[in-house]
Amino acid sequence: MLDVRTALSVGEIAQRSGVTVATLHFYESKGLIQAYRSAGNQRRYSRNTLRRVAIIKIAKRAGIPLADIKRAFDALPANRALTAEDWSNLSTAWRDLLTTRIDSLSQLRDQLDSCIGCGCLSMGECPLRNPDDTLAGQGAGAVLLEG
């Protein structure tokens, strides 16, 4: 339960976390953070919200989608501060995703000079987007492998 003596307003959370009030409302609408209503029907947040917002900012900077952040938060207790162990579990779960992304970007960097930049990316020579010209059967033009 929220301790009304230590609850923070949306403006206080925004100022202390470095995000806008609109961003906090958006995070709340996505279920990433939770506000309570005061007797005057104003949003109030527990101090634990500051740590959740900090984790959201870190995860977003690492390219973790908000849906993945929400899934991770859903596995944690909502009414207590996140612990170092919680952070360890979150970072471990995201490590594989980040490693895959880093490997993909490294491959792109290393092979980018061989790309002629034509835009069609359906040439048999393009190891970045169309290995072995697998998209040729779908017709000419830019056809992406990712769906």
Rank of each mutant, 00 (worst) to 15 (best):
D113T: 13
G141A: 10
S114K: 07
K57H: 05
S114N: 11
I64R: 00
G119L: 04
R61M: 14
G137Y: 02
R95Y: 09
L128P: 00
L135E: 03
N130Y: 00
A62T: 10
L66Q: 02
D103R: 06
A59Y: 01
I58D: 06
G63F: 04
L121G: 07
N89K: 13
P127A: 09
I64F: 03
E125M: 15
G141T: 06
R95N: 10
D74N: 10
G63W: 03
A140N: 07
L112K: 07
V53I: 11
N130C: 05
R109G: 08
K57V: 11
P77D: 12
D133A: 15
D86T: 03
L76W: 02
A81S: 13
K70T: 06
S91M: 14
A93L: 10
D113C: 07
Q107S: 13
L105G: 07
E85S: 08
R71P: 04
A62W: 10
P131M: 05
S122L: 11
A140S: 10
L90W: 00
L82I: 07
S91L: 15
I58G: 06
A84N: 13
L98P: 01
T92V: 15
L121D: 04
C118T: 05
L98W: 05
A72Y: 03
L121P: 00
R71A: 13
G139Y: 00
D68I: 02
I56N: 00
G139R: 01
I116Y: 02
R80V: 14
L121Q: 10
I64W: 02
G139V: 04
D96E: 15
M123K: 06
T100A: 15
C126K: 01
G117E: 06
E85D: 12
P65N: 02
I102W: 06
A136W: 06
